[in-house]
Amino acid sequence: MTEYKLVVVGAGGVGKSALTIQLIQNHFVDEYDPTIEDSYRKQVVIDGETCLLDILDTAGQEEYSAMRDQYMRTGEGFLCVFAINNTKSFEDIHHYREQIKRVKDSEDVPMVLVGNKCDLPSRTVDTKQAQDLARSYGIPFIETSAKTRQGVDDAFYTLVREIRKHKEKMSKDGKKKKKKSKTKCVIM
């Protein structure tokens, strides 16, 4: 069974824990209790493949930012979460993405942009803004509501699919490099 290491990042209060708990335990946590770091595991079937999701729910508070490099190193894919009623959390996505790329030393890291709290009427981040940002990053965008469960499975499952595509691409690139290195030079 394939294991996928997913990391949920975003500013404090955007609903990272609520999304994760909704996926794992099928219930909505409405009281806000700032996370330092929590880890969850769940076995699911995605596109006919049974897999184990190892999900790291991270601290959004700035005082825990020193811990970010460590979990970013171990993560295979990242859910970059903002709240649709919090423009600052949307603007912060850029910083999370840049930090992930720096730590992973790669421009090509599996990510999904997630606009959470889409059940709320007080939207300050337009869907088109988020779609445009995701398009500019070359990553999928999904709106979710941890409260109603809308888009929750889709967000995590899409990230797994992005990781699969990335692994497939990397193995193809690896095979191309191996083929090239088999060419021999004969000096007579």
Rank of each mutant, 00 (worst) to 15 (best):
T183R: 09
G60P: 14
S145N: 11
V125P: 09
Q99V: 12
N26Y: 06
K178A: 14
K16Q: 00
C80N: 01
N86L: 01
A11M: 12
T158G: 05
V81F: 10
K169Q: 07
R161V: 03
E49L: 01
D108H: 10
Y40F: 10
Q25C: 02
S122E: 14
G13S: 06
K5S: 04
I84Y: 15
T144H: 01
G151L: 04
Y71N: 13
R164Y: 04
F82M: 14
K182V: 07
S89I: 10
F90D: 01
E98G: 02
N26A: 09
G115F: 12
Y40V: 10
I142V: 11
V112R: 00
L53Y: 03
V45A: 08
E37S: 06
I93Q: 06
V125C: 12
D54Q: 12
K175D: 15
V29I: 12
V44P: 09
I36E: 13
E63L: 02
Q61T: 14
S65W: 06
G12Y: 04
V45F: 08
D153C: 14
Q61L: 10
M72P: 09
S65E: 14
R135D: 10
R68D: 14
V7T: 14
V109D: 00
I163C: 04
A155W: 01
L6G: 00
L23P: 13
M111V: 04
A59Y: 05
R102S: 09
E91D: 13
M67G: 13
G77C: 06
D57Q: 04
D33Q: 09
L52E: 13
Q61S: 11
K176G: 13
A83T: 04
V112C: 01
D69H: 03
K175M: 13
D92K: 13
C80D: 00
E31I: 10
G75P: 07
L113G: 01
E76F: 11
Q129I: 14
I100T: 03
Q22L: 02
K117Y: 15
K147E: 15
D105I: 02
R41W: 05
I139K: 06
K88Q: 11
A59Q: 11
C51R: 05
D33T: 08
V186M: 05
Y4C: 08
F90W: 12
S106A: 08
Y32M: 08
G138I: 01
G13W: 03
P110M: 02
D173N: 06
R161I: 09
R73T: 10
T148A: 01
I24K: 14
S17F: 00
K182G: 13
G115I: 10
K128L: 12
F78L: 04
I84A: 15
D108P: 05
T2Y: 04
F82I: 05
S39K: 05
T144E: 08
R68Y: 06
E107Q: 10
L23N: 15
R149W: 04
T74W: 10
S106W: 13
L56T: 14
R102M: 07
Q99A: 04
V114W: 00
D69I: 00
K177M: 12
M111W: 05
S181Q: 09
R161Q: 12
D119P: 01
D47N: 07
